[in-house]
Design a protein around this nucleic acid. Structure first.
Length: 813
RNA sequence: GCCCGGGUGGUGAAAUUGGUAGACACAAGGGACUUAAAAUCCCUCGGAGAUAAUACUCCGUGCCGGUUCGAGUCCGGCCCCGGGCACCA
């Protein structure tokens, strides 16, 4: 009988579902816990992608392995279902996003189940379910009460095409991350979360995390901490001072002009009548520019002189004050001291407008380019009788000296700045979580906790308006909040929360998904958190992964969770490319549909192949030929264990006698599989299984005990097939909770080893000799070989290097 | 420009972290079985040379140099590819 993957796989999927095989204990008193999590998907209409499967197979193998190692495993799945596609589909067709979402989820779930994943479906969650978003709103209330949510008129990233405001993280090169539509700056009233309050905390927490270095680096760069000093420059003839932020106070003597951002409020009071019209025209010009145009690095710098002067607090010289859009109002103080000698941007600007360039760090030629060396570079031209002298100091020393002087004379103080901006948290959208907020006259109030959730109302029109009002603003009887006698007491906030809100805490809800009294019980949270292993794509490096950490840090400070960091170990799966080596896309026609693959070859083969393709974190091209190789392997396994009549093969015997080679491979395979799964090196685990099975195929008999252990270690990779084998081997229970077999280290040791014999580092011969032979014996054996003699006879052996059981090297001169 | 990754056969990749480079698989070629095909099984498979020989020699992990008895692995300098950030003072 041939291997019929369809009937085997559907039979065991049904068995697992009916028996709730993978249900975790809420809290186990005798088993240690292991929480292994996938980044839950947005259930798109396109269905499951082979790239989804890659990460899910990896976590499933770990989950199944840990169960066999005696852990109480939490391996849940859910749906991050609020989001634009369902809403855009609703605008086009009038179908309620709820319906689209429902259909997509059931399709996704069907596809996920057909891959044989061991999820505990009793914990399934859906971010659009009021029983879930009730608690998303509740967490927002905690943030609000802690003073971390505020409303402000701000220049926002408005996308006219999507008719929505986007977060900085969602804007890429002046275009929307989703769809690539142009984004412009517009002032709008918005809800903002003070993530900047947690900049330091988020930076600190990274140190102890077992995350890929590049992701940590990405977050570090995004937070963008810089240490410097904020100091005031007096304005000549005014009472005001201009505050600037600099990381190079050592170059203060070289500050030969100043620049204010065009939005800077001081401009109007310092501009001279003579320059006023030019300055105002420039400000107007700036307003018209998109953020993208303004931050384009290679564009020509422009600016206008204000007519006023400031006094350099170190040199006491009068320097011109300009405005220019290369200075950003949103960073530092919105004003800079310009040091053209040692800053490329300032140099470019000074050259264009003929502003003085002063050399204060020795080593370059400031008439040709800015000289930006730091560290030990020497300070020159930096002394003044009235203030201080820094000549001869290194840059590092001068920075310290300058700060000391600045603080002592109350000119300014040492300051830390971050590139991270507060998180714009409202969207003019229907398909998102409503805010638990009511506007009353001039104030805003949270609703009562007992009134949660604020339900998303039914609407007829999902289209946002052109002026940035959410479709919810049209639902009068929802917006108006009335008291018992029908008087309007306030108006609901009509913006909704961004897509990221639901995913900021879903891993907490999985620990206690059906709790109706609280978001999670402290006890269960304490038992399960943190997530031990989190696998997903790299695209969330500064979005979901930073936002979720932010919320978690806040919850920790509020004593609502027991760990500061939510995800102990993070691992990024690589991308699966099309067989042409490019990204899979419909337009290229190189998309592989997992359903077709599973239909033809079975999900066990597909799982195995995705793991065998290469290292989990690397990008690699799909090859259906490669998959067929795994299919061949699976069939080979079948032919070893099952005979033509579908019974257990007669070569499997109850005899315990085994030859050394088989025992060696058997124990080596158990050891290697365990190590490889722990290290997420699934590709080498699969190849070890292939090596072992190639050997077994050649054996005339194999003991049943070995086959049983083999089937157990196979089961995380090919779970359906393994259950089938397990039952053929005479077991009625699932294989899921069989203990992982022990390996015997002594059987992995060979009695005879091959030692490479080198002369001057070049291989000249191999000798087979008893393991742990004396160095003397190895040398005399080696010396007797013709080829060794040939290369050693020309000179004297000056040195002999012996690596036991591995290598012998003669150094001949 | 700055910060991360990464360059190994025709292809996906291994290499116990300084010790026999190319495991395992794909593709290709040859053979067995078959009327034939599929499936399966066996053999060859980095390059060059040499041989009766799968005895042997030389070259080979992006390029150049260094450390070492010995380098894919460590150090210095480049080149190329992928990703991220980018007028952040």
């Amino acid at each position: 009988m041939s291997y019929d993957h369809k009937s085997i796989e559907s039979r065991w999927q049904k068995f697992w579902s009916e028996n709730q095989t993978f249900k975790s204990e809420d809290i186990s008193t005798d088993k240690p816990k292991y929480y292994v999590l996938d980044m839950f998907p947005y259930p798109s209409g396109a269905g499951l992608h082979v790239g989804h499967a890659l990460g899910y197979v990896a976590t499933d193998i770990v989950a199944r392995y840990k169960r066999m190692k005696g852990f109480n495993v939490l391996h849940p799945m859910g749906w991050d279902a609020f989001g634009l596609p369902a809403e855009q589909y609703a605008i086009k067709t009038g179908t309620h996003p709820k319906e689209t979402t429902h259909q997509n989820i059931s399709n996704f779930k069907k596809q996920i189940n057909s891959l044989g994943f061991s999820y505990d479906w009793s914990r399934e969650i859906n971010t659009t379910d009021p029983n879930y978003y009730k608690w998303t709103q509740w967490i927002f209330m905690q943030l609000y009460n802690k003073g971390l949510a505020y409303e402000q008129e701000v220049a926002v990233n408005w996308c006219p095409e999507l008719k929505a405001v986007l977060a900085n993280e969602e804007v890429v090169n002046g275009k929307s991350d989703i769809g690539g539509h142009p984004v412009v700056r517009l002032p709008m009233r918005q809800w903002i979360l003070k993530i900047t309050d947690y900049a330091e905390s988020l930076l600190d927490g990274l140190d102890d995390l077992d995350w890929p270095e590049n992701i940590k680096e990405l977050q570090k760069n995004w937070i963008g901490k810089s240490e410097g000093v904020e100091l005031g420059f007096d304005i000549d003839g005014h009472n005001d001072t201009i505050n600037v932020y600099t990381t190079r106070p050592d170059t203060l003597f070289g500050a030969s002009y100043m620049v204010l951002a065009p939005e800077h409020t001081l401009i109007h009071s310092i501009v001279t009548d003579e320059q006023r019209s030019k300055v105002e025209a420039y400000i107007e010009e700036t307003k018209k520019k998109s953020d993208f145009d303004r931050t384009e690095v290679n564009k020509d710098k422009t600016g206008v002189f204000t007519g006023s002067y400031a006094i350099n607090p170190f040199s006491k010289e009068k320097i011109e004050i300009w405005i220019a859009d290369y200075v950003l109002i949103s960073y530092g103080t919105g004003a800079i001291m310009a040091v053209p000698g040692h800053d490329e941007r300032d140099w470019e600007f000074a050259s264009k407008y003929n502003l003085p360039i002063v050399e204060v760090v020795e080593g370059g030629d400031v008439s040709k380019a800015a000289y930006t060396a730091k560290g030990n570079a020497k300070i020159i031209n930096s002394s003044n009788d009235k203030t201080l002298s820094m000549d001869g100091l290194s840059v590092d020393q001068a920075i310290k000296e300058a700060i000391l002087f600045i603080e002592k004379n109350s000119i300014g103080k040492a300051t830390v700045n971050y590139k991270l901006r507060d998180w714009l948290f409202s969207r003019q959208r229907y398909w998102g979580e409503p805010f638990p907020l009511i506007h009353k006259d001039d104030s805003v109030e949270l609703i009562q906790e007992k009134d949660l959730p604020v339900m998303l109302p039914e609407v007829e029109n999902y289209k946002p308006s052109n002026d940035g009002k959410s479709p919810l603003s049209l639902v009068k009887n929802w917006v108006e909040v009335k008291d018992e006698s029908g008087n309007i007491i306030g108006l609901r906030e009509t913006n909704t929360m961004p897509q990221w809100a639901g995913s900021c805490w879903y891993f907490l809800r999985f620990t206690d998904p059906n709790n109706t009294i609280e978001a999670w019980s402290k006890e269960r949270e304490n038992y399960w958190m943190p997530v031990d292993l989190y696998i997903g794509g790299q695209e969330h490096a500064v979005l979901h992964l930073l936002y979720a950490r932010f919320w978690h840090h806040v919850l920790y400070d509020l004593d609502l969770v027991s760990t500061k960091e939510p995800f102990k170990k993070l691992y990024n799966q690589g991308m699966i490319l099309g067989d042409d080596g490019t990204k899979m896309s419909k337009s290229r026609g190189n998309v592989i549909n997992p359903e077709e693959i599973m239909d033809e070859y079975g999900s066990d083969s597909m799982r195995l192949y995705e793991m065998f393709m290469g290292p989990l974190n690397k990008s690699k091209p799909w090859s259906t030929k490669g998959l067929q190789g795994c299919y061949r392997f699976v069939n080979k396994l079948w032919s070893i264990i099952v005979d033509e009549n579908g019974n257990l093969s007669s070569k499997i015997v109850d005899n315990d006698e085994e030859d050394k080679d088989t025992l060696f491979l058997h124990h080596q395979t158990i050891k290697k599989l365990g190590e490889d799964i722990e290290n997420l090196h699934f590709n080498t685990a699969v190849s070890q299984l292939m090596i072992y099975c190639n050997h077994l195929q050649k054996c005339s008999t194999v003991s049943k005990k070995l086959i049983e252990e083999l089937v157990i270690i196979l089961s995380p990779f090919v779970p359906h097939l393994s259950e089938e084998f397990w039952s053929l081997l005479g077991h009625s229970e699932t294989i899921t909770y069989q203990p992982w077999p022990q390996f015997d280290e002594s059987l992995i040791q060979l009695d005879e080893v091959t030692i490479a014999v080198q002369v001057n580092g070049k291989l000249r011969a191999n000798i087979n000799i008893a393991k742990d032979s004396d160095e003397k014996d190895v040398i005399s054996e080696a010396m007797s070989l013709e080829n060794v003699k040939k290369f050693t006879s020309d000179g004297n052996i000056v040195k002999t290097i012996y690596v036991p059981n591995r290598l012998l090297n003669f150094v001949v001169k």
